Amino acid sequence: MIQYALKCSHGHGFDSWFQSAAAYDKLRAAGMVVCAICGDQHVEKAVMTPRVRPARNAVDTPKSPPEPQGEAVPLNVPRNAAEHALAELRKRVEDNSDYVGREFASEARKMHLGDAPARAIYGEAKLDEARALVEDGVPVAPLPFVPNRKAN
């Protein structure tokens, strides 16, 4: 397979894949290579830079890390508004709910059926367990973070 950068007579640029260079020439001669934007049949190869992979046995030279700008910030510190919002949500969930770990599905089902007292819980469930809870009408929602595992 080969990828070409192409350009029509109207100046639209687009990429397309071909089985080989000969296949491109054959399709172009038959008028089957057309602009993906306007349908123009006057399409030519555009100038492009080749993608060259290093040899499989080539040794990667380590790249120097980017220069820090300003003070270095630890990775666990929120850096923008979205990260601050997620950190606040995590704090609220952890402060106002009971962590039930991998027993989340069974605890949620027990509360839904009235076999356990209702309370706010969070934990972990496999995809099929969560899907079964939703199908059975148990009110659950995924969290946008992975809970910290607490040792009980």
Rank of each mutant, 00 (worst) to 15 (best):
V134I: 14
G137A: 12
A55G: 15
N80G: 09
T61K: 13
R79S: 07
N80S: 01
N57K: 08
L86W: 02
A87G: 05
D95K: 13
G70K: 06
Y4C: 05
K126E: 11
C35V: 02
R90N: 01
D40E: 12
E135I: 03
Y24Q: 08
E129F: 06
V134R: 12
D25L: 11
C38Q: 08
Y99Q: 00
G13M: 00
Y122I: 01
A116Y: 02
A22D: 12
L89C: 07
A105Y: 02
L113N: 13
C35W: 05
P62M: 14
A29D: 12
S97C: 09
A46T: 02
R109G: 02
Y122N: 04
Q69A: 15
K91N: 03
E124R: 11
V146Q: 15
H12N: 10
A46H: 10
M1V: 11
M111P: 04
E88C: 03
Y24N: 04
F104R: 01
V43A: 01
L6Y: 09
E88S: 14
K126V: 02
A85R: 10
H112L: 06
R90A: 03
G114C: 08
E67P: 04
V59Q: 11
P66R: 10
A105M: 07
H84S: 06
G39K: 09
V33C: 08
A29M: 03
A58P: 00
L89K: 08
S106L: 12
E135P: 01
D25P: 00
Q69H: 09
R28T: 04
D60T: 11
A5G: 11
M48Q: 14
V100R: 05
M111W: 09
P142G: 10
E94D: 07
K63W: 05
A130C: 08
V138D: 12
N80Q: 08
G137T: 12
R131H: 13
G114D: 12
A55C: 06
M111K: 07
L113R: 15
V73S: 01
P62L: 15
L133T: 11
R28G: 01
Q3L: 09
T61W: 04
D25Q: 14
K26H: 07
H10I: 03
D40W: 03
P54D: 12
D128P: 01
R119F: 05
P144M: 09
S9D: 13
K110E: 13
A120H: 15
K91P: 00
A130Y: 07
D136P: 02
G101D: 01
L27K: 11
A141D: 15
W17N: 05
Y99M: 03
M32A: 02
Y99E: 02
S106H: 09
A81E: 06
V33E: 05
P68Q: 05
S20E: 06
A22S: 06
A30V: 05
N57P: 00
H112E: 07
A141C: 14
P144Q: 10
G101R: 02
K110D: 15
M48E: 11
E94R: 03
A85L: 06
A125C: 07
A36T: 02
